[in-house]
């Protein structure tokens, strides 16, 4: 892989869910070391993009490519993509009763790293990450997401990413449902994922998380495609002027 090759290259991506086209030609390149944010209204297709990237079976790619590390991953199963270095922090992670957080984390770390981590070593690593994210020890024995509050679920999602160290972390509305203290802690967790070899794609409705996680690139999503891209300042402009401003600008440019 040359330095110039994007880590993720989405090309003319069209996606259907139950025969309804949701994504209508998305183009996006993300290079290692970058932080991107996708912003848009509810229902604009942002979450569909995140589910499609990680390979949800109900999201069917009808056209276009998703190149990850230079390879088209459209035919890959979610676990293959995960082992390839992609991870999604879910907006609404599901509960799995009877499966403890610690067993699950160990199994997924083993799957992603391709080898078992000695228990003691794993515990140390886990405890250190938990401390950073303010996750109490008792969570290890609890069942995954079972009875967790919204904020607890988000912290555990970030905890997972911190352990899995994906090359590309996709975060779907990770800021929703967090109070300001939790938002700061989670944002710090996200920033810790970032390094010159990795990239972050942040999907969000609100600008406020971007005060803590600063993207170099901001994309505006509307009706299943990216309608405007810019630098970090674009998010502030959106915050100040609203999404309508982008749409009006689009309409007027179409007219002119």
């Amino acid at each position: 892989m040359t330095a110039k090759q994007p880590l993720l290259s989405v090309q003319n991506l069209h996606v259907k869910v139950e025969d309804k086209e949701i994504l209508k030609g998305v183009d996006l390149n993300i290079y290692a070391g970058e932080v991107h944010a996708i912003m848009g209204r509810n229902g604009s297709g942002k979450s569909t993009l995140s589910y499609t990237l990680i390979g949800h079976p109900r999201y069917v790619v009808t056209e276009g490519k998703i190149l990850f590390k230079g390879v088209d991953i459209v035919e890959m199963t979610p676990d293959q993509r995960a082992r390839n270095g992609m991870a999604l922090a879910f907006q609404y992670p599901v509960a799995i009763p009877g499966v403890s957080v610690s067993n699950f984390l160990r199994a997924s770390v083993k799957a992603i790293r391709g080898k078992d981590v000695p228990v003691k070593e794993f515990r140390q690593e886990l405890k250190a990450q938990m401390k950073k994210l303010g996750v109490a020890d008792e969570f290890l024995g609890r069942y995954i997401n079972d009875g967790f509050s919204g904020g607890e679920k988000k912290r555990i999602e970030i905890l997972q990413l911190a352990l899995l160290k994906p090359a590309l972390a996709v975060l779907d509305e990770t800021d929703s449902g967090l109070d300001i203290d939790a938002l700061k802690i989670v944002s710090e967790g996200i920033n810790n994922l970032s390094n010159p070899e990795t990239a972050i794609l942040l999907i969000t409705h609100y600008q406020r998380i971007l005060n803590y996680v600063e993207p170099q690139f901001v994309h505006v999503f509307q009706d299943g495609r990216i309608v405007k891209s810019g630098g970090g300042e674009l998010s502030k402009e959106l915050e100040a002027r609203g999404y309508d401003w982008v749409l009006q600008e689009l309409t007027s440019s179409a007219v002119s």
Partner: peptide
């Protein structure tokens, strides 16, 4: 649940591993 399987698979577990984990959880009591 499809969503449970997807969640576990998105963390690197194969479909068989994910299914077994859900079932182990079901039998956990």
């Amino acid at each position: 649940g499809e969503e449970q399987l997807f969640y576990l698979m998105s963390r690197g577990l194969t479909q068989d591993e994910a299914t077994a984990m859900i079932i182990n959880g079901f039998f956990e009591p």
